[in-house]
């Protein structure tokens, strides 16, 4: 595409107002938190003076606008405050736990795309056939599944009843030695040191939570693939291709599927939103040491810097994922100039 650099840059620039909006919202959310953080930080033995001191130290006696700029300045230095419950800077906590969440999310997405996209294609190609019916049942049932409930049922069946799955407690059973941390992804780190045994240990832990998440995201992807494929197959250009005697494979892949992928890629944005939210629930069910369970613990402990850091981190992650999706879309669709969304 000629001059592709310009629209790509423009799309990246467009994320800036969204990021500003995200920062404003997360700032507002922190200031609306119940209770007085100063009282909380001053501790149980606080006197009115010590509370006032803490308040001044936190900058809570300043006007809101001023507080906002202080907040932004701190953000720019990567300072999200200190977690009360762990005693660590929130940024460090999040950085330690993020790979666990990402590993789980990515596995789930790859799994659900690998199942949902072929399923949607087959359902559309054999419309009205048994695969189509299976697809429709899966799709309607799939969006009705509460993730936390699916997780519990899977644990009951595969851990308690069948005993196939390891105990649903974290990323690695204690019998394995955790590999030295390079990427934070256990599957990658174990392979880097050539520890196949631990690799399989980590993979076993990963199966149930990723299946839980994948089941949840299967439905929207399969439904969109089926619908997009159906509309592409009935498009005029597919008829032109058939009338020109092109082989069914070419018609299906080069003509129908590539066009059908466009709306599917768009849906992925929404799916990411669901996945990142559902992640929190799945992490709680499987005691997965990611940022989701970190946030749940922080909520219980009213650890406000941690919750706010988590919300902000998730939003930034999501904005970046959407950016990647849009850029991927532009690679498939020559018509995109990024001017209209």
């Amino acid at each position: 595409m000629a001059g592709a650099g310009h629209p790509v840059l423009w799309r990246i620039v467009q994320t800036i107002p969204v990021l500003i909006g995200v920062v404003v919202v997360s700032f507002v959310l922190t200031r609306a938190l119940p209770g007085d953080p100063a009282v909380y930080f001053a501790g149980a033995m606080a006197t009115p003076e010590s509370i006032a001191e803490v308040r001044a130290a936190l900058g809570l006696d300043q006007p809101l606008v001023h507080q906002f700029f202080r907040y932004c300045a701190a953000l720019l230095q990567g300072d999200l405050g200190r977690s009360v419950s762990t005693g660590q800077p929130v940024v460090e906590d999040l950085a330690t736990r993020l790979p666990a969440s990402l590993e789980l999310t990515l596995c789930a997405l790859v799994l659900s795309c690998a199942v949902a996209i072929p399923l949607g294609i087959l359902a559309a190609v054999r419309q009205g056939g048994p695969i189509d019916h299976l697809c429709r049942i899966l799709v309607t049932a799939g969006v009705s599944l509460p993730t936390f409930f699916t997780g519990i049922v899977l644990i009951y069946v595969f851990y308690y009843l069948l005993g196939w799955a390891p105990s649903p407690l974290g990323r690695l059973d204690f019998v394995y030695l955790e590999p030295p941390r390079v990427t934070g992804f256990l599957l990658v780190d174990t392979l880097l040191v050539g520890d196949i045994e631990t690799f399989f240990g980590a993979a076993r832990q990963l199966i149930l939570p990723s299946v839980t998440l994948a089941l949840f995201t299967l439905a929207p992807i399969a439904r969109m693939t089926r619908a997009a494929m159906l509309s592409a197959l009935s498009a005029d250009y597919v008829r032109t291709a058939r009338a020109a005697g092109l082989a069914p494979r070419t018609v299906l892949l080069t003509y129908a599927l590539r066009n059908a992928l466009l709306p599917v890629v768009t849906t992925l944005g929404m799916v990411f939103s669901f996945v990142l939210g559902a992640n929190v629930l799945v992490e709680k069910v499987f005691a997965w040491p990611g940022i989701g369970s970190y946030a749940v613990e922080a909520l219980v402990a009213s650890d406000y810097a941690a919750v706010q850091g988590f919300v902000l981190a998730m939003a930034v992650l999501f904005v970046l994922l959407n950016l990647v999706i849009d850029l991927a879309y532009a690679l498939i669709d020559p018509r995109i100039g990024f001017s209209a969304k």
Partner: peptide
């Protein structure tokens, strides 16, 4: 721009 469930939590 927020994952919706996360925003609801917040």
């Amino acid at each position: 721009a927020f994952p919706l469930f996360v925003l609801a939590m917040g």
